[in-house]
Amino acid sequence: MAVTEKYTEEELVLQLQNRSQQAFSYLYDNYAGALNGVIVRLVDDAALAEDVLQEAFLKIWNNFSSYDASKGRLFTWMVNITRNLTIDTLRSKGYKKQQKISADENSVSNYTDGTGKDKFDALGIKNQLVNLKPEQRSIIDMAYFGGFTQEEISKQTGVPLGTVKTRMRTAILELRKLIT
């Protein structure tokens, strides 16, 4: 999401580089939900998910000097930190990637919370996402939320490596259209 309310992304980055806790508070208010979305997609345990979120923001704060705006958007950097931390935490606790993110396209599209209800809807996911084809959503979820490698995605979905690339591209093109 674009930072429009109070800071431009450049201003926010500058403030954070100057260790402004006010800017950090703003960062949290605007990004914690999106980052938490990544975490809870992988972590079942609510308390553990909270710990991971807190830890992710602590890492962001402590390592902010290593963020390089010329190498990508701020959120991209933050979501990579969060995703890697989440996966590392689960791994250290003996979880397997597959536990929550299914490799099966259909099961991802019918992602449920165990009550048969679509978890996306349960979480209030925007209806705009309906335009995303199930196989597109599957591939994005596996990559963006699951931290799967291309090869793993290819193996799990039975889709050739080259197709993973093109499918990824069309899925993201769709995302770029959907929300602004």
Binding site: Y28, D29, G33, N36, G37, E50
Partner: peptide, 23 residues
Amino acid sequence: SAIELGLENYATANAVPPAANVK
């Protein structure tokens, strides 16, 4: 940048409000 923003929007759409005490 546009691709990143697209993914960022996807993440925002999937946002889950964090527990109140985490902040």
